[in-house]
Design a protein around this nucleic acid. Structure first.
Lengths: 153, 153
DNA sequence: GAATAGTGGACTATTTTAGTCCTGTATGAG
DNA sequence: CTCATACAGGACTAAAATAGTCCACTATTC
């Protein structure tokens, strides 16, 4: 359904946790406890995020992880890239001998346009946005949000 | 990687094929032959597309499928909806007892914004756009297209 | 009434994703 | 200098989603 993986979803929670604790380092274990995710899972996520340069790690006793940059400079696109690889709605349907539209896939160009639109949308939202809702939510809107969340799961 | 399923990809090829043959009905078998996809797969796709109202079906001998509407009025969003269910990048990461950010998922609102952006992007591209590349193809490319189309029928 | 062609659903196989575990390495404290 | 802490990397298993196939049934035409 064109949705991101659970891991990516978890990843934003993990990043949010690091952002909340920006005074110092957070250990894998403490993040796991705070997010109620499994420690091995959090570990895996932090390793991926570290490799992507979104978080920095300090090894050894008293070590841990922290955001590499302020939340305002980390985009949703970067998070997706780090945890799911490059965002691309389709890698072009034309595998050799498969594409019915012979050799050059006529369908490709428009999908690329859609890709770019999605990319722009993802780049325009930062981790900071993900943390603090951008529109100041009036109480009733918040309420509606809650109800909706409850409805969808 | 935030990509649509293969089936959806195939679905656009199938729709493209129907659009190409808009003078009459196409059988499941002929579409399969033209797209080089398996006949059962094409059958499945056409059934789904028919149920979603994007194509119409005629049963019995001399039956087949055709687009229900002109390609200009069928959006990428509708195709995705038909083949993958409602497009939603995330169903909100806050499962009960899972979301570390206190009951109401602070992360949700911005994802919803991204969702809407993606939706708009998908609604702004039609099947017609998917067929005819928006950038005018250089003459030789067009020529190649024609030759290959003629060759395969 | 025989052949064609869509309908619906069940089923299997494959692939992807999620989650776990183990071994290794860097750092700091005692 | 040794031990405990905590990240690094990768292999592995389990679970779920996806892709693909098959069958019995219904409608239509010749």
């Amino acid at each position: 359904m064109l949705r991101m993986s659970k891991l990516t979803d978890y990843g934003t929670l993990v990043l949010a946790q690091l952002a909340a604790n920006d005074r110092g380092l957070s250990t894998c274990a403490s993040v796991a406890a705070a997010t109620h995710l499994g420690q091995p899972t959090v570990s895996k996520l932090l390793k991926l995020l570290a490799r992507a340069g979104l978080v920095v790690s300090v090894r050894g006793a008293q070590g841990g992880y922290a955001l590499a940059r302020p939340p305002e400079t980390i985009t949703a696109a970067e998070i997706l890239d780090a945890l799911e690889g490059p965002v691309a709605i389709t890698a072009c349907s034309s595998a050799v001998g498969l594409c019915g539209l012979e050799g050059h896939c006529r369908v490709g160009a428009a999908w690329q346009r859609i890709n770019r639109s999605i990319r722009v949308a993802l780049e325009s939202v930062t981790l900071a946005d993900l943390l603090t809702s951008p529109d100041p939510l009036p109480a009733e809107m918040l309420e509606r949000e809650l109800r909706k969340s409850a409805a969808t799961g």
